[in-house]
Design a protein around this nucleic acid. Sequence first.
DNA 1: TAGGCCATCTGGTCCT
DNA 2: AGGACCAGATGGCCTA
Length: 405
Amino acid sequence: MIRPACEDLLRGATRGHVEGELGSKTVWRCLSLSSIRAAAMLTRLFNEPSLLPDVQKFPGWVDDSGSEDSKTKDDEQDHCRLGDEDLDEGDMKGGGSRAQSEIAGEEDDDDDDDADEEDCGHEGDGDRPKKRGPKKRKMTPARLERSKMRRQKANARERTRMHDLNSALDNLRKVVPCYSKTQKLSKIETLRLAKNYIWALSEILRNGKRPDVVSYVQTLCKGLSQPTTNLVAGCLQLNSRNFLTEQCQDGARFHMPNPSFSMHAYPYQCSRLSSPQCQSGSNTHSLRNHSYCSAYETVYAGGASPEYNSPDYEGHHSPPVCVNGNFSLRQQEPISPDTERGYHYSMHYTGLPGSRTSVAHGLAYGPSGARSGGAHSENVPPFHDMHLHHDRAPAYEELNSFFHN
DNA sequence: TAGGCCATCTGGTCCT
DNA sequence: AGGACCAGATGGCCTA
């Protein structure tokens, strides 16, 4: 049986990295349970970076795409069919027409309608092949009514379940680095981006060094579609053509100080970006005009910085986190002064509006130091609407400053 | 118009 | 027995 693609994605992204860090509720176990709980758990993970793995306990990213514990759903044929007598032929719509033929073809040769429970091995008539499963009961009006009610209740539950799943995905959209209210990421792209984001954060924690923004965006955009790649690149003030070109010319290797963070270990598909949004100029909009949302913002705004808890912000249901607690744990590791500066910067973020100018200024430069367009682009679709319902740009700039300082 | 994405319905399976 | 979960099927909507 084919597992849902999203679940496989999530599993590949998180297993081995977060397992064990969430106590009995590991993400891995969560993924094994259901995709909706997985999405909720991912959301919580983003809100609480303290749940990220201790890099000393979990060195390296585990890409275990092959070590799937096989699903043990049996394909045995000889089991009784359940619930056939409850099928409502009149209410069949959409995909429910599959079983109609076999139901319709079932003879109702049972004269006593109610309480006869049949087992699988009833004897057939003549040379007709034996039919397995319970005999059809006569569908009395009362039974028909009960069947309808049961089906309607099941449909309602399924709707609710899917709505919950969508809500969890919406929450996930709000904590991944790129969020737009008007241009929502698709479900699959949200999960892919979340996976990449976890990877990127884990690499940062593991290496203890900041990657350059090109590598960061490369990591985030791995496997994403072209529009999503453009979106993420725009969110991070980077022309997606630049980093993809740079990546291809570089022998498919990231610009990471640590060689383990390379294309070899993390293959990246070099896609061609040619959409208008990707052309020059799409990376020139300033944070002074556009504030974006990222998971780092979420962390900072989640409780440590009440000034960013805008009433308009309705996103996160996870409990607020203590940022200091999160990163102080990593501070115990021996880190370079450079790294220390980065962590220090993160930990002592105060969210003062005054910090925006310098950081935004830093973002006006590309990864190579060349000015990427200084002018403020007021209308650069599709990124012009990404700030939306709250203003937490300073925290986002903190994130970017991490890569530019 | 084709293709992507999504919501919904549905039956099967597993679990409590 | 009933609920949760899953995957297949279908149709609607949107966009290139």
